[in-house]
Write a protein that binds this DNA or RNA. Structure first.
Lengths: 270, 270
DNA sequence: CGAGGTCTTGAAGACTCTCAACTAAGGTGG
DNA sequence: CCACCTTAGTTGAGAGTCTTCAAGACCTCG
């Protein structure tokens, strides 16, 4: 039932059956949060952890002038706040994008299972570190990538993540985000996101249909925005057919010299 | 000697003398890294933790086209990678901005002291969480704040952090960053950073002199860019005279309605 | 069928970038 | 001690990406 978490953890660490059972056992108290509603609000001091069992959610900040900045998307298997209970109060909110099923997990349960399995502890740590790496990529997106690139990169990320937890069928998946969501996640305006998506469609890099995103040629989209999956620190395995090489940038080596006549966006921003 | 770390940890958690000793005891192997040199390079798999004992450093990513994106600044007392040893390889580099003293701390030592003191464990966690909160603020900076605001916000952050570890005298501190560093940290160009700094100077919000930053009226600069220190999750204490209230944004409450004729930048970006 | 949310489109303007050159400040060597 | 070099900071003008404002089309749903 809670296989998403397990799948997610398994992308960074191989788990034994016992460990999987331990993880599953902590997700007891599951509640439904309707779309558009806060799972945790800015200023809250949550007393337990929130694990997203089903649905999509977003981590966001609202500024004084009303502007919104999305700092993360969460999909099934993601923890909203693996640690936030340690801080007194949340400095941001977490909202359900679709109707969500959220498991309320007791701190002690996490403590317990991570104490009894070093592998599990490491898996949680790694998952957290990957989240942080994603955050850094978003920082690159806004500031050192032009709009089309940034959006394409975000789509690649979401696609890979959906793939990792088994939410899609290789090149098509359910993307319940509005263009406004994408705008707030990339730091752009809705209008511009709209135009850039059109651009991507025109170039045949993506297709969209009623909340479904279809990526005809994943490698092409990735190449167009220089997406590399290394920051996900996937455990070595050929389960996930993503194109390596992963730590390709050796000293002195010039990365693949754009041989084909493939689409690639402008030289970015400096 | 390693009082910076301790001061830093104490901003989020009060430590006993014993705990302070424990922290100090793990920082034995200290080396000097000259300015401009990597403390950890992209792709490295560090085998121990790196604690910045003295000097400033930066976490950065280099893109294919050569552009650089700085994702964090580190100052004395900051860990470069409290956890990175868990991952196989770094997905970014860490470089010394000034000559640095770096303590190489064994993983086991951290494990040991965090196991023997729950307070210490919590302190480390919190420090990590604050780092993450800073990352989110940077995300807000690039995308939902105009350039002047973003730069001012960054300066406020650095000023507060310097203050917290005792690097400055209330309103003046040593800022060893070039305008290029600031540009790569905000996602702007050097040229534009230059102009925005001029703007800040013209408005009397900052003064700069040979690597020294002087903030005549901290509250004014903070107000100009809507800086709030709540995301640092400072433990309640009046040691650090920063202007609260900290979780002021209650539901429905309209934040201070710009009564004075004070400088405030444009309405941000949407 | 009306209503609200989401997506599109156009035109004008603003913020930020690019390019290129010049000044200022430090450090080194003769 | 000064010429020379390198790095960092400044300045100007023009171009572009992205925003703003506003309105219309589309779509889903009660």
């Amino acid at each position: 039932m809670h296989s998403y978490v397990i799948r997610k953890l398994e992308t960074v660490e191989r788990l034994s059956d016992l460990e999987k059972d331990m993880v599953a056992s902590v997700c007891r108290d599951v509640k439904v949060v309707p779309r558009r509603q806060d799972i945790i609000s800015d200023g809250d001091s949550p007393e337990h952890l929130h694990l997203l069992v089903d649905g999509w959610a977003t981590r966001y900040k609202i500024l004084k002038d009303g502007a919104r900045r999305i700092t993360a998307f969460m999909m099934p298997g993601d923890f909203c706040d693996l640690h936030a209970t340690i801080l007194c109060a949340m400095d941001h909110g977490i909202m359900a994008i679709t109707d969500c099923k959220v498991a309320y997990v007791a701190n002690e349960d996490i403590d317990r299972i991570t104490r009894s399995s070093a592998t599990l502890a490491r898996a949680f740590w790694r998952a957290t570190l990957v989240d942080e790496a994603v955050l850094r990529q978003w920082l690159v997106n806004s500031g050192r990538r032009v709009a089309v690139e940034a959006i394409a990169h975000l789509l690649c990320e979401l696609h890979l993540r959906a793939q990792l937890v088994g939410l899609e069928s290789r090149d098509r998946f359910n993307l319940p985000l509005t263009q406004e969501d994408l705008a707030d996640a990339t730091g752009l305006t809705t209008v511009h996101v709209n135009r850039m998506l059109q651009e991507l469609r025109k170039q045949g890099l993506i297709e969209m249909d009623r909340g479904q995103l279809f990526i005809p040629h994943v490698a092409a989209l990735r190449r167009a925005c220089n997406f590399e999956d290394d920051y996900f620190h996937l455990k070595m395995s050929d389960e996930y057919p993503t194109d390596r090489p992963r730590h390709s940038r050796l000293a002195g080596e010039r990365p693949d010299a754009d041989s084909s006549g493939e689409i690639r966006f402008s030289p970015g921003r400096r």
